[in-house]
Design a protein around this nucleic acid. Structure first.
Lengths: 346, 346
DNA sequence: TGGAAATACGAAAACGATTAAGCGACATGC
DNA sequence: GCATGTCGCTTAATCGTTTTCGTATTTCCA
C-alpha cells in the first residue's frame, strides 16, 4: 500500500505537506496542493483507516446492534428493510456499518460497550435486542452517541414508528367498514405491544365499541401456530368477531390458514388485518389489509439523526422522532356497512 | 480509555511487558503475567483496535459485499438468512462484519477494492452483486482473501447452492407425482439460472419428458407481476401444463394469484412449485412445494472457508463448496398418478 | 566455581497518519 | 528602519500497539 511517505518522497515535500494537501488544509500553496493530489491519484493512494482512526479518534464507522437470540433480527422483514435504508443513508455520507458483535461469548470477550469503544465506532444504532439487558443499559449509559429504534431510554435519541396512531388508524378504518365486533390478538409484552394495545382500547372507547375480554388474546410475534390456535378459539366463541387483528402480518397468515381450513372465506365470512406491511402481504390473495410501517423513512431517520449526533453533538436535540405508518388497504377486510350495501345494490 | 501505558505505570513494568502479558507471549514470568492481567481487568482495559490493526495488519473484520441497486440484497429472504448465519459463524470466532460501502458515489470515493484495503478487512465475502462489474473484477483480482456465494470466478473460493441437483430433485419429485406436462418460468440470465435451466432440460430428457418450447418462459426473479403474466400465457395454451415451476417462491405467489383469479384451484386444477424455501411459503395455504436451500449451511460455509483462507492461506484449498438443498413437500403439487388414484380408491 | 543457557524484562523503533509549533522569506504599516 | 503579519513549508511529537534486540539475573552442569 502506498503511504503518504511514498508520495512525499516522489514530490520532494514532507509528509505533513502531503497530509495537508490531501485534507484541503489552508496553509499550503495551490501549486503544491495540485501536484501532490495528482501524484497521489497516479500512485493509487488511499488512506490507511487504522492510522487515521488512531490519530483522530474518528472511524466513520457506525455500529449496529442486532441481536438474534430471541429476536428474528436480520431475517425479519421489518428490520431488514430498516437496516437496508439505514445502510444506504449512512453510506452516502461516507460512513460504514459494522455489526456489534453479539455472538462472541468466549471467555474474556468484551461487553457491547467495550466492543464498541474498542472498534472506535463513532455512534451506535440499537435496532433489535433485549432492551432490558444489563449490557444494553451499560451501552446506552456510555459516552458513545446512541440511537434506538422503537424503544425509549431516558436522555437517548430514539426513532419510533407511531404505534399509537397506527393502531388508531387501523381500527378506525375497520370501524368505518362497519365492523363492531373486533378482536385483537396482540404480541408478547414489550413497549411496542403496550402502545398498540392501549391505543386499541382507547380508540375502541372513542368509537363506542365494547370489546369483550375474550376478544383480547396474546400470541408471540411471528408465531403462526400461536396465531392459528388463538384464531380457532375466537372462531369458536358463541359470538365470534367479524374482524380479527393480528400482532403482525406473519401471524395473520396463521389466522388465514385457520380460517380457510374451516371452510370460511376471507373477507366474506370474516375479516382479518395484520401489522407491518411486509411485502408478501401485498402479493397473496386476498391481499392483506395491514398497517404498513414506513421502514424506508425509519432507517433514514435513524441514520441522519445519529450522524447529526456525531457531527454536531452540541446543537443536536436529544429527542424522539416519530415516523407515521399508513393503512394499506388490501381486501381482507369486508365492507359490511348497510349504507354501502345499498350503494352496491343501486 | 485506559491504555497499556496506564497499566504499565500501575504495575511498574514497561508497556512491552504488558503487551506480552496480555497476549500470552512466552518470555514473561508467570507471576508478572498474572498480576498484569488482574490489573488490566480491574482497570477495565480493552485493546484499541485501530492501534492493533496499524501494527499487525490484522483487523479481525470481514467485509461483506451486498449491492442493493438491482438486487434485493438484505431484504431478500435468501440473502438475509445466509447473512444471518454468516454473522453468527464469524462472530463466534472473534471476527466482526462490516458492509463494503456500495452507496458512496461521491467524487473521489474509493473503489470496492480500495475501500476494503483502506479498512483493512482480513477477507471479503461477495454475497450479492453484479458479478460482472469491473469493480468486482478488480476486487477479486486484488490481494485480499475472497469468497463468493453462488458465483464462480477462476481461482477464487466459492460456496454454491447445488442448483443442478436441486432442480433435478424438484423435477424428479414432480415427475413421480405423475406430471408429464411441466412448464418452467425461469429467472433472468445468470450463472444460477443457467445451472437450473440446463439441469431442468437434462433431467427432463432423462425422464423422457418432452418440453415444448412454449413451456419455457422467462420472468425476472421476485417479479410477481411478470410471473403473473407468464402464468396467464401458459394457462391460455391449447395444451396447458399440469405443473408450473417458478424462478423463486416469491414469483410463485404471482402465479398463485393468476391461477386463483381464474377460478382454478391449487393443486386440484393445476400444480405449482417455487424455489428457495422462504418462510412464508410454509405458512400459506396451500403450502408451497419448493426447493429449500440450506441458508444456514451456506452462511456457515462462507464464514468458515473465508476464515480458513485468512488464517491458513497456505494450506487452504481454493475450491468450490457445494451445499445441497432439499425438496420441501408442501401441498401445491397434486399426485396425479393412476397408481396412486387406485390406492386412494382402495 | 566458571561459563553457557535459559529466563524475565526493558528500550526503542515502527505502523501511517495528524497537527502544533516554528522558521525563513517577503510584504506591509507607521 | 523596525516591528509585525502572512504564506508555505518542515520538524517533531503523538495516537496505542507490537516486536526485535539487548541485557541483567538466575539456573544448570561440568
Amino acid at each position: 500500500m502506498v503511504s503518504m511517505k511514498d508520495i512525499s518522497a516522489v514530490c520532494g515535500v514532507s509528509v505533513a505537506t502531503v497530509s495537508k494537501a490531501l485534507n484541503d488544509q489552508s496553509d499550503i500553496g495551490q501549486e503544491t496542493k495540485k501536484r501532490i493530489r495528482q501524484v497521489a491519484e497516479e500512485m493509487g493512494y488511499f488512506p490507511n483507516t487504522a492510522a487515521k482512526m488512531l490519530k483522530t479518534n474518528r472511524s466513520y464507522n457506525i455500529g449496529v446492534l442486532f441481536n438474534h437470540e430471541d429476536y428474528s433480527g436480520l431475517t425479519h422483514d421489518y428490520y431488514a428493510f430498516v437496516l437496508d435504508s439505514l445502510k444506504r443513508t449512512v453510506e452516502e455520507k461516507g460512513y460504514d456499518i459494522t455489526f456489534v458483535n453479539t455472538s462472541d461469548r468466549r471467555a474474556g470477550a468484551m461487553s457491547y460497550l467495550e466492543h464498541c469503544k474498542s472498534r472506535g465506532f463513532d455512534g451506535v444504532a440499537i435496532v433489535c435486542t433485549d432492551f432490558y439487558s444489563p449490557e444494553i443499559l451499560q451501552l446506552v449509559r456510555g459516552t458513545i452517541p446512541i440511537i434506538t429504534l422503537d424503544h425509549l431510554f431516558n436522555n437517548v435519541c430514539a426513532v419510533m414508528s407511531n404505534n399509537v396512531q397506527g393502531m388508531q388508524d387501523l381500527l378506525t378504518y375497520i370501524y368505518k367498514k362497519g365492523h363492531r365486533r373486533v378482536a385483537y390478538i396482540h404480541g408478547a409484552d414489550s413497549a411496542v405491544t403496550q402502545s398498540r394495545l392501549s391505543s386499541f382500547y382507547r380508540t375502541a372507547a372513542q368509537l363506542g365499541l365494547t370489546i369483550p375480554d375474550e376478544y383480547i388474546r396474546m400470541s408471540p410475534y411471528r408465531d403462526t401456530n400461536g396465531a392459528y390456535a388463538e384464531t380457532v378459539r375466537l372462531l369458536e366463541l358463541r359470538e365470534p368477531p367479524t374482524c380479527i387483528l393480528y400482532p403482525d402480518d406473519f401471524s395473520a397468515f396463521g389466522g388465514f390458514n385457520a380460517i380457510q381450513e374451516r371452510g370460511m372465506r376471507i373477507p366474506d365470512d370474516i375479516s382479518i388485518a395484520g401489522y407491518d406491511g411486509i411485502r408478501v402481504a401485498r402479493h397473496i390473495e386476498p391481499t392483506l389489509t395491514t398497517l404498513r410501517q414506513d421502514t424506508e423513512e425509519l432507517g433514514k431517520m435513524v441514520g441522519e439523526k445519529l450522524i447529526s449526533l456525531i457531527e454536531h453533538p452540541k446543537i443536536t436535540l436529544v429527542e424522539t422522532l416519530v415516523v407515521e405508518g399508513h393503512v394499506f388497504e388490501g381486501n381482507s377486510v369486508a365492507d359490511i356497512n348497510v349504507k354501502s350495501m345499498k350503494s352496491h345494490i343501486r
